[in-house]
Amino acid sequence: MIRHSLREALLSLWRNRFMNLVASFTIAVSLLVLGLFLLLAHNLRSVVAAVGSQVTVSVYLRGDATEEQRDRLMDSLRGRAEIEGTEYLSPQAALEKFQRLFPTMREVAGELEENPLPASVEIRIAEGHRDPDSLRQLAEEMKRLPGVDDADFDLPWVTRLRDMVAMARAAGVSLGGVVGLAAILTIASVIRMTIYARQQEIEIMRLVGATRTYIAAPFLLESSLLGILGGVLSLGALYAIHRHLAASQGGLVPVLRDLLTTSFLPRSTSTLLLLLGLAAGALGGLLSLRKISL
């Protein structure tokens, strides 16, 4: 049974190789579209991860805050799950940091008679707590402590990046989905043509008592193989694009090129693309068999 199906499927793939290649290409194109967006999302996500570790809440102390108040503040932050670490910045350290970050303003700062920068505590937020609500809550809590002048956090562009990841994925899924649907229908009609071409043989097999499964299996196998082939083609094309862009200069917006070349899809996502190809092929096969009496 398995040998029969495999032999028939391979034979049929070879006989209609041109049409089959077209069908595989449509699957490959849809998976390539999806794959490009997934690659974008994948690299965007690593950017987000890198940037995310810089999410902090800054607590500014009042000029007249006592040492005791400062210690109490530091004590209250110790051992909390949402906090990855803390750093105390004295006014002097804050000034040095400012001068390091903005070298052109160095002289302006030097001309000041008095250091205008307050002492502050930088709280690095642990992963899983870097959402606006948690940050706002922590900042509010800090503000209520004695000796604290103000607390704020800088988040908006991190969330915007994260939104972009979600958008890239959604775009990939919906665009890929539309093209994928076309691919499934193409496979279905190619397989249906194969079935029509072999109508006589199918009729005879039915008459001598072949089961539906026995008759249908080769066609289903054929369409699934077409799907996998599409998946392999798309992965190959995606990898070729990835390597080509990495090797070439210019041509694309630099940011976009970076997002396509930094790293390739992880193995799980590549496998997913192959499986999607297989699923599209199998679905096309089922669709073509549905309306035909076997």
């Binding site: 039915r206 008459l207 001598v208 008592g209 072949a210 089961t211 539906r212």
Partner: peptide, 13 residues
Amino acid sequence: AFRVPTLRRRLGI
């Protein structure tokens, strides 16, 4: 429909 092949295997046509 599932049993039709069983019938046909007992027949020669």
